[in-house]
């Protein structure tokens, strides 16, 4: 019996290792070829190791071609600010819904949460029209506002669930001491919710960073364009045939999400909130 399980475990390990290798191959390709020059890549074989490191030339090329750095900074800005604002607004609403005396708690929750139900294809035409009318098309403020609004429902969902778990006695005793509602929000709810807030931040930052659809629809100049829209200019008819530069751009644009991956990696075993975005 024991040898049977030992043998099958070995077979499984070998099979899994094979698929693992398959899954990892594209990364090898990226790392080996992202540092070559275009000429070296086109004339040599892609499995040859690079003869030198020409990151700087490739970096200059993508900056020239698609304003890489500007897109990168824009997305950092959108990710950081929109996510922070969304968490702030969502936490206020979640606090009202879970702890304050208001009527129709379920109604308010569903009203805000309904933002996650429809696919974003429903939003792009109306927002595009609205922005054209009020001169927000192709502006940083415009994209920030959209990202903030669209991050709110998910944050509300996570924070409301967490706020419900905060013991009522804590709130009651703070009230006895004469603390105002707002003070309780700051010093009890927000203080205790550090972990879910961090989770919201990481997930929503990743979403904003990875967004392509709204960047494509709502921006056209490099000043407002987020990173993924910049990258999408590399491919297709108007794109480049400079493979190493495209790969370098891919590496650089993955740094923030890769960093988040490392952070989240620690909390794998607890399972994490499932986001459908």
């Amino acid at each position: 019996m024991k040898t049977y399980t030992e043998n099958s475990r070995k077979t499984i390990t070998i099979l899994l290792s094979f698929f693992c290798f398959l899954w990892f191959l594209p990364f090898l390709y990226v790392v080996i070829n992202g540092v070559k020059t275009r000429k070296e890549y086109n004339l040599g074989e892609f499995w040859d190791l690079p003869k030198g490191i020409s990151i700087l030339e490739n970096y200059e090329y993508i900056n020239d071609r698609i304003d890489f750095m500007m897109g990168f900074m824009n997305s950092l800005l959108y990710g950081a600010i929109a996510t922070t604002l969304a968490i702030l607004f969502a936490s206020l609403a979640a606090y009202a819904i879970s702890a304050l005396k208001i009527k129709g708690k379920m109604f308010w929750f569903m009203l805000i949460y309904s933002g996650t139900i429809f696919p974003f294809q429903m939003y792009i035409i109306p927002i595009f029209r609205m922005y054209s009318n009020v001169d927000l098309y192709d502006s940083k403020i415009g994209l920030l506002a959209v990202y903030t609004a669209l991050c709110i429902p998910f944050c509300l969902f996570v924070l409301r669930n967490y706020f419900y778990s905060i013991p009522k006695e804590l709130v009651e005793s703070a009230k006895m001491d004469g603390a105002s509602d707002f003070k309780i929000y700051v010093s009890i709810f927000m203080k205790m919710a550090k972990a879910p807030i961090a989770a919201c931040f990481l997930f929503q930052f990743t979403w904003v960073w990875n967004d392509l659809l709204f960047g494509l629809t709502l921006s056209k100049s490099a000043e407002a364009r987020p990173i993924m829209s910049s990258l999408s200019l590399l491919n297709g008819a108007s794109g480049t045939n400079d493979v190493p530069s495209a790969l370098l751009a891919a590496i650089l644009a993955s740094i923030p999400t890769f960093f988040i991956f490392l952070v989240l990696n620690k909390s794998f075993n607890y399972g994490f909130p499932t986001t459908s975005k």
């Binding site: 702030l88 206020l92 005396k101 208001i102 805000i112 933002g115 939003y123 927002i127 959209v146 609004a149």
Partner: peptide, 22 residues
């Protein structure tokens, strides 16, 4: 207490709910 809802509700109504109807 309703003021706490205002920013979230306004943003979601403008960007999501208005968009759905539009």
């Amino acid at each position: 207490p309703y003021l706490y809802l205002v920013p979230a509700v306004i943003l979601v109504v403008i960007f999501c709910i208005y968009s759905d109807f539009f």
